[in-house]
Design a protein around this nucleic acid. Structure first.
Lengths: 345, 345
DNA sequence: TTTCAAAAGTTAATCGATAAACAAATGGAC
DNA sequence: GTCCATTTGTTTATCGATTAACTTTTGAAA
């Protein structure tokens, strides 16, 4: 592997000059220096020179490494793949390496301190308790898809209010006037951050009010205590709802599993067909949404862009640039589970 | 951040001595040295000393970093989360950092060489073309869930033959004698490595021969050219199959989507019910397998263990230890989509 | 008591880059 | 032609650890 010294020897200059040329600290104001700089670059290229970041990092007090905090819970997905893809892309472009760090409950800061990162990325799966780790680390940090736990932490979130509004507008345009919002069952609520879901609901509510049917929003949230959630969890609630007069003609479910259960199983057992009698929208676009039958209309969060934007913000903070924030937008993917309400309804 | 010098000053010894103590190069044969070593360790602990791997890496020519090669195809999942979890765990225990690297088609070795990894992990999604990158890098490498492309590359795979056998044995024990193996459609086959699927099929075949029904294996593989695969792709094939005399009483599908399609949609349109009339097994356990109705019996690959074992092997190779290989085993998860065949069949 | 091999410790040099301090070259203004 | 601010280049020192070469200690054997 070629070093600065190798290039310097071949060009008859000092290593510092080579370093300056390659780091763009030579403006090339005079012909003589411009030519020399050119030659240095050529030789560097010829030798396939790549900076040794170990040495660079040692001297500059930086590491060009960013830690990605993940949980060590076996059940939770480590990180959404598309977020990861966006992070890798954008950090790569800025010459930062993305390193995975497991969060140990026992020794939370140990291997974390070892790494000496320049910054930290926190996925939204992490809980408040674990966020404490980063406070202690005193490093630039960005949280993806969750509110910042304190002022000095960056946060990148899509406009969840708008995401909810997107789903609602679609249904309103189809002619629906009474819409149910299917929330998590009690046992599931504990395991998920509420922030997104509340925003979605608020967005739905806003659009319905704008459309003049403010009281058409029906909250569906079963009280099942600690029992695990199954398709049956929602049955009693929906059955009694559909026995009454103000039955909703469309349902918005706060994740894909619930959407599928409502669309595929409950609609059947209620004697309804999706989408003819009942429209269903999922607020989370999962792979299964595209191959179930009917294919389920979903709101897709801009995961890849979330990753890219988080990287951009964090690099900005590390390098004291603080670029203006952008808010990635959610998209509606219209599939086969939504249609105008049945004529009689 | 404390350095060796800080500890050395406080203990009245040289930095080299501190380094030796902390790296366990002092045997403590004499009381005087044992005591001194103890004191050094105490002070190190007190100051919260952590080795600066930038300096260590610079001198030792190692980086303690392992690159994880991933595709840059937007559609493909970057990496299976459970594999990743296993990798993080095991590398963490061995003090290696796991760094994500995007594979650029254009400039395949550039940022790769920058990183100067000690080794490489390759996920099974990568294709032969991309494997070329690692050959050029000349580093210890391990491929997860795919055969090694050359002798000097490590490979960690579960026993896929046994995985197929597992599914077959389950069905045979239930009393099935004619079993269909649902392979990918033509258009999908191109996008997936065939190795696993061939092994699964071979395992199924072996078990059926052992059970004395060697000709009971029915291959189901639609010829749909380049048309995208949908639930309808399999309909003609299955319809004609179920019109004939030798209809299978059970189907093994080579992924979750196909299993779901066969179990949920096709069985209905054929006038069969799952599992009463038709049993279905998925060779890939995906989240949806657990919440669809019926919940689908699946073979779960030991993803987490694959990650752990890959890390173990690679660290062994890097540190010239070459531990004996272990083969993680697949497991059968019995759910509601399998039952004894109907009496008449 | 002397001798000696093993163990422990010290000093000096090094990995590859960059920062700081200083010296030299340059082109335009006077 | 001289002066000067600017740009460029050089020398020296440094980041924090480890290796190499060498010296000192040590406990036991002779």
């Amino acid at each position: 592997m070629a070093t600065l010294q190798d290039i310097a020897d071949r060009c008859g200059v000092s290593t510092v000059t080579v370093s300056n040329v390659l780091n763009g600290k030579i403006k090339g104001s005079w012909p003589s220096s411009a030519a020399r700089a050119q030659r240095v670059r050529e030789v560097a290229n010829e030798l396939g020179y790549r900076v040794d970041w170990r040495a660079k990092a040692l001297k500059t007090k930086r590491t060009y490494m960013v830690g990605l905090l993940t949980t060590d819970k076996p059940e939770t997905q480590v990180i959404e793949g598309r977020v990861l893809a966006g992070l890798i892309e954008a950090f790569g472009e800025a010459s930062y390496q993305l390193v995975f760090v497991r969060v140990y409950k026992d020794a939370p800061t140990a291997d974390f301190a070892d790494a000496r990162f320049d910054g930290i990325v926190i996925d939204y799966h992490l809980e408040a308790e674990e966020l404490e780790v980063i406070r202690r680390a005193q490093l630039p940090a960005v949280v993806i898809n969750a509110p910042a736990p304190s002022d000095d932490v960056l946060s990148v979130m899509p406009d969840h209010l708008e995401a909810g509004a997107l789903a609602a507008r679609h249904l309103l345009e189809l002619g629906h006037r009474r819409i149910g919002f299917v929330d998590s069952s009690e046992s599931e609520q504990k395991h998920w951050p509420r922030h997104m879901i509340e925003q979605w609901r608020a967005g739905v509510r806003r659009e319905m009010r704008n459309a003049g049917c403010g009281d058409g929003l029906i909250e569906i949230e079963p009280r099942n205590g600690d029992a695990p959630e199954t398709a049956d969890t929602y049955r009693p609630l929906l059955t009694s709802l559909y026995a009454g007069p103000d039955r909703p003609t469309a349902l918005i479910a706060n994740n894909g599993t619930r959407a599928a259960r409502v669309a595929l199983r409950l609609s059947e057992s209620l004697g309804l067909r999706c989408p003819d009698d009942l429209s269903v929208v999922s607020m989370v676009d999962e792979p299964a949404m595209d191959w179930l039958s009917p294919r389920i209309t979903s709101v897709a969060l801009p995961f890849r862009d979330l990753g890219r934007e988080a990287a951009r913000q964090l690099v900005g903070r590390i390098e004291d640039a603080d670029p203006e924030p952008r808010r990635p937008r959610a998209e509606l993917i219209v599939r086969d589970s939504t249609a105008p309400p049945p004529p009689g309804a």
